[in-house]
């Protein structure tokens, strides 16, 4: 069923997204020294949250949109093929 496939895709993307989103506070909590290390003047954690986060989200969204459109296309083709087959059989019956 398409709904289940769509849900599975959504869940896969959300797991990727949540592990980044919810993982960062854990890293801040457990390894503050590492996350406080300086990169180009930024602390590492500031770099990740204030700058790097947005492109990461874009990538997840882009993957989701491509896969989701492909899924719908696939489902549509499958139904269209079934119908073609059905109408083809009807045609043969008539002949």
């Amino acid at each position: 069923m398409l709904m289940q496939r769509q849900l599975r895709l959504s869940i896969a993307c959300v797991v990727a997204f949540l592990s980044v989103l919810l993982g960062l506070p854990v890293l801040n909590y457990l390894v503050p020294e590492l996350m406080g290390r300086r990169v180009l003047g930024f602390t590492l954690t500031w770099m990740v949250l204030g700058v790097g986060f947005f492109p990461a989200v874009w990538v997840i969204a882009w993957v989701f949109i491509r896969r989701s459109i492909a899924l719908e296309e696939w489902e549509w083709r499958e139904v269209a093929a079934q119908e073609e087959k059905a109408s083809g059989e009807q045609l043969q019956d008539k002949l």
């Binding site: 959504s10 959300v14 997204f17 500031w46 949250l49 204030g50 986060f53 947005f54 989200v57 989701f64």
Partner: peptide, 16 residues
């Protein structure tokens, strides 16, 4: 910084 990140990520959740 969590605020702008949350505002933007909320949209991803909406999309998904």
């Amino acid at each position: 910084l969590w605020y702008p990140v949350g505002y933007a990520c909320g949209y991803l959740f909406l999309l998904l």
